[in-house]
Design a protein around this nucleic acid. Structure first.
Ligand SMILES: [Zn+2]
Ligand SMILES: [Zn+2]
Ligand SMILES: [Zn+2]
Ligand SMILES: [Zn+2]
Lengths: 166, 166
DNA sequence: GTTCTGATGTAATAATATAACAATTACCTA
DNA sequence: TAGGTAATTGTTATATTATTACATCAGAAC
């Protein structure tokens, strides 16, 4: 029996209910603090995104929202996504045109995304050394940074283990 | 009179004909070396992309190609873009759904893109320190990197100078 | 209750990208 | 030079992603 701490960050066996609970309750308190509304639709979309650690497409979310909100249209989804991004509760994965839950919405986040081609899971990391190097590079270039998209595609630790042991 | 070397990398006054000539002749020789065809359409699309250092949208390229290729359709453009990307002659800017010429197609390039919100120009940099830090981070995460998209949005040196002195 | 604001409903359309198959061209070899 | 093969392009249709505009609704402020 492997202990939780010995496992990778997102082993298939991990307790995902906990991920979801933390994400949703953090979202709720952040919205309360900020005086913005985590409406039913927004909450449902956030929940749908959190069904896995994969990046989800907008129209896939729409399909999955419709059973809950019969009137849902593209605008419904995109509005909810815009709100969730503004509040830092999700990230847009630019290179996939997809969306993934943020695991550190209550922290500073200058994140880097590792995106696995096999399991499609997205792993968000602070990567402070990378960010520091990036800050230096920006200064050297005289470039004033507003936002960053750092998206690394490849094979995650879990999947390469599986491939290796097969 | 400011000398060329004192100026920023892409001052508005720079000799862009030289950028274009270098890019197109490099492209031609790389394709020759590799035994792939830089056909008329591909060459024309590459030339259109190199009309500036801005990232260009596919359908904008299509509009600009049509006077030269009356039969041009979306597939025409996307095929040419696919070819140019495969050959490392252009980059896709994921966060803009747009395309920009590569200034170092003959080198190793693990590039980082600085994208200016004001002048829209894209500046490609090797940023070796960033790449090293990224390599470390990937190793720590046990992540096997296939490709990267590192896109930094903000205000470039030229534009912030202009804003500053206005 | 009225007014204001933010959220949602609804319809249409814009913008980005791909698939499938036919026709043509380039290139190799007999 | 003819014939065969693979790569390129033509052509049509369609899929996917995203936005705009305007109407309606619900809750807070007055
Ligand atoms: Zn989880
Ligand atoms: Zn994986
Ligand atoms: Zn130039
Ligand atoms: Zn600029």
């Amino acid at each position: 029996m492997t202990s939780q701490t010995e496992l990778n960050q997102y082993p298939s066996e991990h307790n995902h209910n906990q991920c979801v609970n933390v994400a949703l309750s953090t979202a709720q308190s952040l919205c309360n603090q900020r005086g913005v509304l985590l409406t039913t639709i927004r909450y449902q979309v956030l929940s749908l995104i959190w069904e896995s650690h994969k990046a989800v497409k907008a129209y896939e979310l729409l399909d999955r929202l419709r059973p809950l909100q019969a009137a849902a249209k593209p605008a419904t989804i995109y509005r909810a996504l815009d709100f969730l991004i503004e509040q830092g509760l999700i990230h847009r994965v630019e290179s996939l045109n997809a969306f993934v839950g943020c695991r550190c919405s209550d922290q500073q986040h200058e994140q880097l995304l590792f995106i696995c081609k096999l399991c499609e899971q997205v792993d968000e990391r602070p990567a402070t050394d990378v960010m520091t190097a990036l800050l230096d590079e920006s200064k050297q270039a005289g470039f004033l940074v507003h936002s960053k998209a750092i998206e690394i595609h490849g094979i995650c630790a879990n999947c390469s283990t599986k491939v290796g042991t097969t």
